[in-house]
């Protein structure tokens, strides 16, 4: 299959919805295939790439930070970017500017950028397909 360009719009905030688990699973497959991936992180999803996320321990499970190995979405974003590059693809990850401002999450994982709905429009025009994963 030829290299495709796929766009994903995400809306859910990290650590609150299974939509993101599925979204990252989909993004990972597209990255492994070397596709060009565009992501528009809107509303709560604009915090996915927030660089100051810190893993925590799990006292209920009796695990310290290392044992819990808690996932952070910023690590998943960074891994996604690296995976795409290793497979000959690329990720253009755009964090909605107004969304990050109102949430105070405007320090991003390197390789992601600030943007606007105009980027989603441009992504849509340049893509073979688009999937919006809305919040409920």
């Amino acid at each position: 299959m030829s290299k495709k360009t796929l766009t994903f719009a995400l809306m859910d905030a990290p650590y609150e919805s299974e939509n993101l688990t599925t979204a990252f699973r989909l993004l990972a497959i597209a990255a492994e295939r070397g596709f060009t991936i565009n992501v528009f992180a809107y509303e709560g999803a604009s915090a996915l790439a927030f660089a100051k996320q810190v893993p925590h321990p799990n006292p209920v499970h009796g695990k310290n930070v290392a044992e819990e190995n808690h996932p952070t979405t910023k690590d998943q974003v960074a891994a996604l970017l690296a995976c795409a590059e290793e497979n000959g693809g690329k990720v253009d990850w755009v964090n909605c500017g107004m969304c990050v401002d109102e949430r105070g999450v405007n320090e991003f994982v390197p390789g992601t950028r600030r943007g606007s709905p105009a980027d989603l429009h441009a992504f849509t025009e340049a893509s073979d397909n688009v999937l919006v994963i809305p919040t409920k």
Binding site: K4, L6, T22, L26, D128, N129, L131, V132, I133
Partner: peptide, 17 residues
């Protein structure tokens, strides 16, 4: 496998969530 979603998107199926 969830790959089927990427397969269909790549093949141009209209994909709705």
């Amino acid at each position: 496998k969830i790959d089927v979603v990427i397969d269909h998107m790549a093949e141009g199926h209209k994909t709705l969530w």
